[in-house]
Design a protein around this nucleic acid. Structure first.
Length: 465
RNA sequence: GACCCCAUCGUCUAGAGGCCUAGGACACCGGCCUUUCACGCCGGCAACGCGGGUUCAAAUCCCGCUGGGGUCACCA
C-alpha cells in the first residue's frame, strides 16, 4: 500500500502533547508501511501565526525524533493554488458568492440556536441573482453542499460515521479579503501532497464531512480518515496547563527523555497486547490504526515518570552525562569538567533512583557544591553532634590509609571502622553522608565516597561544622 | 440547544460470544532487602456505568437511559 501521511500544525503556539501524539501516530503509520510522513505548517491565518511558534514546533518535532520526509510545506505559500481551486468551483457553479454582512450572519446564528438546528447559515445567496448584490460588501465564496441525503465516512478508528447532509452548511472557501480558509486549504494541500491517510484529533471528525464534499466537488479522491481521540487532563477535563498541556519543550526541561515521551504517548490510546515498554523498532512493526482506542485517555505524570525511569536506566552513561550537565548551564559556580568527572563515577547509583534528568542533576549537585554550614535540614544537622564529629575526624584518618580508592575497599574500611569503635554502621554512615552531601538522602554512601575522591572527602570531613 | 463520538480497576489498557473466578502496567497499601532516599523481590487492594433484549452462553451483539467528550467562526 502506498502511504503518505502528514502532520499539519497551526503555528499559533507551541507544540502541545496532543499534537505530539498525532505527529507520532502519523510518523509511525508511514514508517510501518514504508511510506512518507510530511510536515505542513498551517499558517493561513497570518494574524495568529508566528515565527517563534513555527520554530518551537519544528524544534519539538526534531527533539522527539519525528523527522519529516521531504520539504516542510508552508500553507501560506500555496495561496494562489487555493484561490485557483475556489475559482474553478465558482466557474463550475459548485460554489457561489455570498454577500451577507457579519450582522446578518450573527442574526442567523442566534436564530438557528433558538430553532434547534445545527446549520446556521440559511444559504440565502446560494440561488440569488448575483446582480442584486450590495455594492458596499465584498463577498465570500461558499461551497454548494448537497441539500439532502446522508454522508458516511468509514473512519479507520471510529468506524462508519454518518451525518445528514442538511446538517452541513455551505462553508466558506474564500474570505471576503480573498484569502482561503483552513477548510478549503487543507483539501487542496492534502490532495496536492498526495496524502493517502489523514490521522488527526477527533475534534476534526465533523470537518471530515465538509472536506469530503469538497473533494467530491473538485473531482478528487478523498483520503482515508483516522480520527484519534483527544488526550484529557488527569481530572478528565480538557487538557490545561496544570496537567500536561505544556509545550513539548517543557517536557525536555522537566528532564524527560524523548524516547520516554514517545513511548508514553504511544501507549496513550494505542496498545499491542500487554506490551508497555516498546522500542521504536517494535513500535513501527506493530503500529496499526485498528489498535487505536476510540475513547479519550487521561494524561498521567506518574506513568510518564515510570517510563522515563526505564529509559534513563537504559541510556548510555556518556550520553546521560551530557544531558544532565545541560541543567548546569546557568549555574555559574559549577566547574563543568569536575562535575562530569565525578558524575560519571556516580551515575550507576544515580540511575536507579531518579525519575528524570533534572532530578538526577539535583541529586548530583553535591558533587561540586559542598555542604553549607549550618546544614539546613534539622534532622541532618542533628547527625553532626559532638560524638559524630569526633568519629568523623577519626574516620578521616583511617580512610586516608586506603591504598586503592574503590568501592570495595572504602566499604570494607568504613565497616571495620564502625566495628572497631563498637558502633553500628548507620552511626558512621549517617554523619558521613551529611558531611559529604549535606543531606540525609543520597545515593549509596560508598558510591558517594568514591565519586568525590580521596582529597575531596578529606577536605569535606575537615570542614564539618 | 442541535449534531457527532465515546464508556473495563484511581489511571493507561488486554479482551473480536464460551479460554474471564476479567489479565498486565502505573499509582496505592503491606512485607523482605538495607548505610538514608531509592532500586529490586514477594504479596495485597481494586473495574466490565444502569436497565432491557438476542443467545444454550454476553465485558464482548442490539435498543434505551445515564455519564463524559467533540463540533457548531470570514480560527485552525
Amino acid at each position: 500500500m502506498n502511504v503518505v501521511t502528514r502532520f499539519a500544525p497551526s503555528p499559533t503556539g507551541y507544540l502541545h502533547i496532543g499534537g505530539a501524539r498525532t505527529a507520532l501516530f502519523n510518523w509511525l503509520f508511514a514508517r510501518h508501511h514504508g511510506g512518507q510522513y510530511k510536515l505542513r505548517i498551517e499558517d493561513t491565518d497570518a494574524k495568529r501565526s508566528t515565527k517563534p511558534a513555527i520554530n518551537a514546533i519544528i524544534d519539538s518535532l526534531t527533539w522527539l525524533g519525528l523527522e519529516n520526509d521531504g520539504e516542510t510545506i508552508f500553507q501560506s505559500s500555496r495561496r494562489n493554488l487555493h484561490v485557483a481551486a475556489a475559482e474553478k468551483l465558482l466557474a463550475e457553479n459548485k460554489a457561489y458568492r455570498c454577500y451577507c454582512s457579519s450582522e446578518e450572519l450573527s442574526e442567523m446564528r442566534t436564530k438557528a440556536r433558538a430553532s434547534r438546528t445545527t446549520n446556521s447559515y440559511d444559504r440565502r445567496w446560494r440561488d440569488r441573482d448575483p446582480a442584486d448584490h450590495p455594492s458596499d460588501i465584498s463577498p465570500v465564496v461558499r461551497i454548494k453542499m448537497p441539500l439532502g441525503g446522508v454522508t458516511t465516512i468509514n473512519d479507520k478508528v471510529q468506524g462508519a460515521v454518518s451525518v445528514n447532509n442538511e446538517e452541513l452548511d455551505d462553508f466558506i472557501l474564500l474570505r471576503s479579503d480573498g484569502t482561503p480558509t483552513y477548510m478549503h486549504s487543507v483539501v487542496v494541500d492534502d490532495h496536492d501532497m498526495e496524502v493517502t491517510h489523514i490521522i488527526r484529533g477527533d475534534d476534526h471528525l465533523n470537518n471530515a464531512f465538509r472536506q469530503y464534499h469538497l473533494y467530491q466537488a473538485l473531482n478528487w479522491k478523498p483520503p482515508e480518515y483516522a480520527h484519534i481521540p483527544l488526550i484529557h487532563g488527569q481530572d478528565g477535563q480538557k487538557l490545561s496547563k496544570r496537567h500536561g498541556a505544556l509545550g513539548v519543550e517543557a517536557y525536555k526541561e522537566m528532564g524527560y527523555l524523548p524516547e520516554a515521551v514517545r513511548n508514553y504517548l504511544l501507549r496513550l490510546g494505542w496498545s499491542h497486547k500487554d506490551h508497555e515498554l516498546i522500542s521504536t523498532k517494535n513500535a513501527i512493526a506493530w503500529f496499526k490504526l485498528s489498535s487505536i482506542n476510540k475513547g479519550p485517555s487521561r494524561f498521567d505524570f506518574d506513568r510518564l515518570d515510570s517510563v522515563n525511569k526505564h529509559y534513563i536506566s537504559e541510556c548510555e552513561d556518556e550520553k546521560l552525562v551530557q544531558l544532565i550537565i545541560e541543567f548546569a548551564r546557568g549555574h555559574k559556580d559549577i566547574d563543568e569538567k569536575l562535575f562530569v568527572e565525578r558524575l560519571l563515577l556516580l551515575l550507576p547509583a544515580l540511575k536507579k533512583r531518579a525519575k528524570n534528568l533534572k532530578e538526577m542533576f539535583n541529586d548530583a549537585l553535591f558533587l561540586v557544591i559542598p555542604p553549607a554550614y549550618p546544614v539546613k535540614d534539622k534532622k541532618a544537622a542533628n547527625c553532626l553532634g559532638p560524638d559524630s564529629k569526633k568519629l568523623l575526624r577519626s574516620l578521616s584518618l583511617t580512610l586516608n590509609e586506603i591504598e586503592d580508592w574503590d568501592l570495595d575497599r572504602t566499604e570494607k574500611c568504613v565497616r571495620s571502622f564502625a566495628e572497631a569503635h563498637g558502633v553500628k554502621l548507620a552511626d558512621v554512615a549517617k554523619p558521613l553522608r551529611v558531611a559529604l552531601t549535606g543531606s540525609l538522602a543520597s545515593p549509596g554512601i560508598f558510591e558517594v565516597v568514591v565519586a568525590l575522591g580521596r582529597e575531596e572527602v578529606a577536605s569535606r570531613l575537615k570542614n564539618v561544622k
